[in-house]
């Protein structure tokens, strides 16, 4: 198992270097002088330009700049935002929990609904439940989620007035940031109504973000179940006279879960892309909205480092999925 983990880790090194190379070249391949771009429309004096160039290291050879960039990266130094002047890493760490909270709740919704629906659809293949749920899954899979979010806002916030339109919690409440997770912090604070407010703010964005993963998980679970239920060992279990619920619960479901877990893990990339849109629509203060705002504000250090951090994160989660996969399925790790 240790060899398996090591080989997977080793495999990631070139990919990670590639990611740093892309993030590094990003600022350099922008048309025009990066310092002028950063200075904005007001322009800049030649002395200040030279000073800034030297400060940012743009006057040195490219490969020196790259290794310098890598070196600082390994010390956790990602530079400062041009707009807020704060370290990018600190900004990332304050905003990250909001995205994690949103993403976790979304993937929870997607899994808790998607897996049972997929299993039911497979067991009752061809029934109306199968047809309705799989049609719904295809619609969900095809959904432009930025529009879906707007529709939910029109209906639940505009017409019914049940949920707030944006943000993480009502401005009435104020409590210290303990974990960064609004659901937990609001509970700890003990303020009346704070938790309910946090939930009502979270529900629509997480449903929107869950839509596509839910559809994918339901479809994948169904087809994995169908495949497994055609296997010889399932037939044997049936022939032995085992009760149908035991055949499905013990023999079929367990084996069908392997591809499903991979699918769930792969949704992390989908979630990150979805978070950009969802956070923009609901003004959710997470890293998706941070990236969009930084792109439109031309805050290049943030875009560069955000890109790096997000890609690194996706890579890390994919590694964890791979490792879990090896853990559940010994055949893979011994290959």
């Amino acid at each position: 198992m240790i060899r398996f983990i090591l080989s997977k880790l080793l495999y990631l090194v070139p990919t990670f270097l590639g990611i740093t190379l892309i993030a590094f070249s990003f600022v350099r391949i922008l048309p025009g002088d990066p310092v002028l771009l950063m200075a904005g429309e007001r322009g800049i004096s030649p002395e200040r330009h030279a000073e800034l160039s030297a400060q940012l290291g743009f006057d040195r050879p490219l490969w020196v700049q790259y290794f310098d960039f890598l070196g600082r990266l390994f010390h956790g130094d990602l530079g400062n935002s041009l707009v807020t002047k704060k370290p990018v890493m600190a900004e990332f760490l304050t905003l990250f929990p909001a995205t994690v909270e949103l993403g976790l709740v979304a993937i929870l919704i997607a899994t808790l609904i998607g897996v049972p629906v997929g299993v039911m659809a497979a067991i009752k293949r061809g029934s109306w439940f199968d047809q309705v749920s799989m049609t719904a899954a295809l619609v969900g899979f095809s959904m432009p989620i930025f529009w879906w979010g707007l529709l939910l806002i029109i209906f639940f916030s505009g017409i019914l007035g049940w949920t707030p339109v944006s943000g993480r919690i009502s401005l009435m409440y104020f409590f210290p940031d303990v974990t960064g997770f609004m659901l937990i912090d609001s509970l700890i604070s003990g303020q009346k109504g704070a938790f309910t407010s946090a939930i009502s703010h979270l529900i629509l964005p997480s449903v929107v973000l869950a839509t596509i993963p839910l559809a994918v998980i339901a479809r994948q679970t169904r087809s994995a179940m169908l495949e497994v239920m055609g296997e010889d060992y399932v037939r044997t279990a049936r022939a032995k006279g085992m009760s149908p619920s035991r055949v499905i619960g013990v023999h079929a479901l367990r084996n069908a879960m392997i591809p499903v877990i991979t699918t769930i893990g792969l949704q992390i990339g989908v979630l990150m892309a979805g978070a950009i849109l969802t956070e923009t629509i609901f003004s959710w203060p997470g890293i998706g909205k941070w990236m969009i705002d930084s792109i439109s504000r031309r805050d290049y250090p943030v875009v560069q480092s955000g890109l790096l951090l997000i890609a690194g994160l996706v890579m890390l989660v994919n590694l964890l999925v791979d490792l879990t996969y090896g853990l559940i399925n010994p055949r893979i790790r011994h290959k």
Binding site: T15, G18, L21, V270, I276, L307, I310
Partner: peptide, 14 residues
């Protein structure tokens, strides 16, 4: 692999 490591919409945006 490097291209696939980025969420597609994010890379397209950048």
């Amino acid at each position: 692999d490097v291209i696939l490591a980025f969420p597609s919409l994010l890379l397209a945006l950048v």
